[in-house]
């Protein structure tokens, strides 16, 4: 079953097209890894798919409320404990997977520690545990393995594999080999937006000056 279909998508950052003509589809049980040099537009593409910004052109089709987004920032509150942070996101998404999520990301021992006292890698693990409590099928992950050690990367790969086995799907931008042999690769370099002179999308400032600010 196809969970996410992207057709001829053009995404923009700051009113300028960065990627154009991106098309792919993601079926349940599959993972897709986005590759490309810094600044190619991986984060912009993922934010567009998460619905945080509108695409410049093209179509994205997916089930309503199907995407769980994890960005560079984990959305943790320093003064809340590990458990309280997760419980909050579970309540927002009306799910109850806090215990499972804690166990899967190996956070049991830290359950009552304030998030402020966690190391960078532990915070990241907590941020990824949040994905597990959203209960959403498509994970959209932006550099999920930043500041994780080898053991935690393996733990995370295991969590992704379990999610795929349960019929989910994952789309991630990462430079680290997760050891997910089943994951497909998509190199974004060929989709780099052309300048307007070469037939690419015109920037927002070129034809709709007022709209560029909205």
């Amino acid at each position: 079953m196809t969970l996410l279909t992207v057709e001829n998508l053009t995404v923009s950052r700051g009113g300028l097209a960065v990627l154009e003509g991106v098309s792919f589809s993601l079926a349940s049980g599959h993972a897709l890894v986005l590759r490309g040099p810094n600044g190619i537009g991986k984060t912009t593409l993922l934010r567009t798919l998460a619905g945080l910004q509108p695409p410049l052109a093209g179509r994205v089709s997916m089930p309503p409320e199907g995407i769980a987004y994890a960005a560079h920032a984990d959305g943790l509150k320093a003064t809340l404990s590990v458990c309280e942070n997760l419980q909050f996101w579970a309540a927002i998404h009306a799910t109850d997977g806090v215990e499972t999520a804690l166990a899967r990301m190996n956070l049991r021992a830290l359950e009552h520690r304030a998030a402020a006292s966690l190391s960078a890698g532990q915070k990241r693990r907590l941020g990824l545990a949040r994905l597990l409590v959203t209960g959403r099928p498509v994970w959209v992950l932006d550099e999920p393995t930043v500041s994780l050690d080898a053991a935690s990367v393996a733990l995370f790969a295991e969590a992704v594999r379990a999610h795929l086995a349960e019929g989910g799907a994952a789309l991630m931008a990462t430079h680290i080999d997760l050891g997910l042999t089943e994951a497909a690769m998509l190199d974004l370099a060929p989709f780099k937006a052309r300048p307007p002179e070469a037939g690419g999308h015109r920037g927002a400032f070129d034809h709709d000056f007022d709209g560029a600010f909205l």
């Binding site: 998460a50 619905g51 769980a68 987004y69 960005a71 920032a73 984990d74 959305g75 943790l76 009306a94």
Partner: peptide, 14 residues
């Protein structure tokens, strides 16, 4: 906004 919660709230069901 600073800790990323606002992004995540924007993608949440509420």
């Amino acid at each position: 906004f600073e800790d990323g919660s606002l992004d995540l709230l924007a993608t949440a069901p509420i």
